[in-house]
Structure formats: structure tokens, C-alpha cells
Amino acid sequence: MTATFDLASSSVRDLNQALHDADRGSFHIANPRGAHAVAAGITSEIAVQIDGSVGYYCAGMHQRGAVHIYGNAGTGLAENIMSGSVHITGNATMSAGATGHGGLLVIEGNAGARCGISMKGVDIVVGGHVGHMTAFMAQAGDLVVLGDAAEDLGDSIYEARLFVRGDVASLGADCVEKEMRPEHTERLTQLLEASGLDASPADFARYGSARELYNFHPDDIDAEVAAAKGATS
């Protein structure tokens, strides 16, 4: 049994309340017309299909359910996702999957700037390109990009793994290319399969943390002190 919500006539608040009250079943959402916070805060294993483009924070704070969007999304798609899955057929703008702790986010099109910023365990698969500062301060989880990555990929990254098939415009501070070991190929194969996107794991390069920013280096403070002394003398 599928319940239908037409956002041309019902409010996002009523829709989200119904989704929060449900503990099973499937929902179909029509005419989102760029509305914000559509299907945010789901906590149960429901299936939600959204026909059309959504605004900010669609499927934010998502847990356990499966959300499938046929369209594009604005800022913060699946922000702080904890578990479950969010899949979009089109593009997502800034900060998709930001701070996500778990679950799977699949973006068939392009993702804008800061995709996966501060990701803490979410897995993200992007069919197209990703914008600048993607995976900034990423802490855990895997990010797969079938297209290219713009400037400063993985800046100040902790321990997330980044797999990119296309070109990387530049790597951010402390992000380096790393060897693809068998366990990485295996994990990448799983993620591609789960996403439904077609690509060969052999075509990807892996990037991750050089771990140079983990510790404070006494040499750096010596250099600072020397520079300060030089400036005042």
C-alpha cells in the first residue's frame, strides 16, 4: 500500500509528520517544486519516492528508511544521515551528505562544493563530478566519484577513503594518493554494486590522509619563534 502526498496541495510539515508516524510502508511524493526539508527526519524502514526536484536538506538526519528522488536537490541533501539510503537521479548542490554518520548516499549526477564535508561514516557514491573542497575534514566512511574532483579534494582529511575515477584538480592539505590494495578493490566493488552505477574498480585511484596534521610538530613552533624573533630584531 502506497500513500501519496501531493505537495501542490499538502504541506511539507504534514508530509513529514506522516513519515515520522509511520513504522513501515511506502510513500509517494508528487510536486515537491523545490520545497525545503522534504522527507527530513525519517527514523523507520519506510520507502519514499519523490518525483521532482527538492530544495534544501532533503532527507536530512535520515535513519533506516530508503529515499529515492527523481530530480535534483539543493543544499544539504541527506545531511547528517545516520543509516538507511538516499538515492537521487539528478544533481545535488552544496554539502551533500555533510557530517553523515552512516548509511549510503547515491548521487547519479554531479555533486556541488563540499560534498561529504566532515563525513563521519556515511558512504557516498557520485556518478558525475564533485565540486571543490569535497570531503573537507572527512573522518570516516568511503566516497566514490566516477567523474572528476574539483580543487582541494580531501583537505584536512582524517580517515575517510576517497576513490576517484576521473581527474583530481588538486588535493587539499594532507590528502595524498594511496595504493589500491585488494581490500580497497573489494570495498569499492561492493559500493558500486550497492549504488547500481556501472564502473570498473580497476579504473579508480585511492586518496586518503597523509596523517601529517595529526600531531603538533615542535619544529613548527621553533620555526614560528625564529620568524617572530627575526621580525622584531
Partner: peptide, 8 residues
């Protein structure tokens, strides 16, 4: 600034 202005 946002898609909702374009949606109709």
C-alpha cells in the same frame, strides 16, 4: 538562489 523560484 533556489530552485523553488524556477519550479513553476
Amino acid at each position: 538562489s533556489e530552485y523553488r523560484a524556477i519550479a513553476r
